[in-house]
Design a protein around this nucleic acid. Structure first.
Lengths: 161, 161
DNA sequence: TAAGATTGAAGATTCAATCTTT
DNA sequence: AAAGATTGAATCTTCAATCTTA
């Protein structure tokens, strides 16, 4: 009798994808976050911020662009960088042409930390995904996930800097 | 010169998928959470909890199973249900055969709330995904995401109850 | 001892408001 | 007025410890 409150729509393909995205993201993140924290004392966003910075020319980014790349709010980025600055992994730099802007710059220590963390973190990510998907399936997944909001935008910034 | 700190591995198919999962989830969730909050005063997990409960026989679940289904910790579920109980959408029920267990039971008000919220929320989810993917692509995505940790487990529980 | 559940303290993130500079 | 950034308050979630029952 029960268990059928929401019919049709409730199990539409879009809903199925959304629920799987929710649960899958949560489980993957929990696992990878635990590893990153235990082995390197970094959160997922800590790591991702260092990585985005490391891929730019000059190792610096505006906070706004970091927010877009990480899919965080402006204040989220301020708080995230607070922590990284305290650890000496990122430093503030002023923009010579626009005094409103504060750059986040990857320090030597930050680059070193990223390099240290990368090998084991990348291995964890690969273990998690390559255990479950073939190379072709991963390519398919990447191509499809690319169309989600936030994904292409982040890549553009990445390329633009 | 810079921007090439991490080579090869750093752009492996697994990493590409993980980063897209991170950003895509964040962007989708932000958008859907805002809609759900504005129109119904519910968080994403509020909604998902009501939905999981509505699909069971008798409209109740153990907290442990809810945690597994939502990919939350046990204490996360306690806090989530606290809020739903305050709103009268869920009520505590004791288990007659095991005094350790407290069931979360969907109330009439909870079922009503879920029904109210569903139509617009489902429409939002469909708008978000159907705008970007064909039906076949959604099916492919669902099938692949199914293999992520946490996803199949949640479905099993859903079915088991 | 295990399992189910809760609690206090802490962390991460957001919103709304604010400040400065353009 | 708009853009970049920060801050205080609030929310959500987790971890570690605890409690009760099996």
């Amino acid at each position: 009798v029960s268990g059928q409150v929401l019919t049709d729509q409730a199990t539409s393909p879009a809903i199925e994808v959304w629920v799987r995205l929710l649960r899958g993201h949560a489980a993957c993140r929990r696992s990878l976050a635990a590893q990153l924290q235990a082995e390197h004392g970094l959160t997922v966003n800590d790591y991702e911020a260092l990585l985005l910075l490391s891929r730019t020319d000059g190792y610096y980014m505006r906070r706004v662009d970091l927010a877009d790349g990480l899919q965080l709010t402006a204040s989220g980025v301020t708080r995230l960088l607070e922590g990284l600055e305290e650890q000496g992994l990122v430093a503030k730099t002023t923009c010579p042409t626009d005094a409103r802007v504060t750059y986040a710059k990857l320090t030597k220590a930050g680059l070193k930390k990223l390099k240290q963390a990368s090998s084991s973190h990348i291995a964890s990510v690969q273990a998690l995904f390559e255990e479950r998907f073939t190379r072709a399936e991963l390519a398919t997944l990447a191509k499809l996930l690319d169309r989600l909001p936030g994904v292409a935008a982040a890549k553009q910034d990445d390329r633009a800097v």
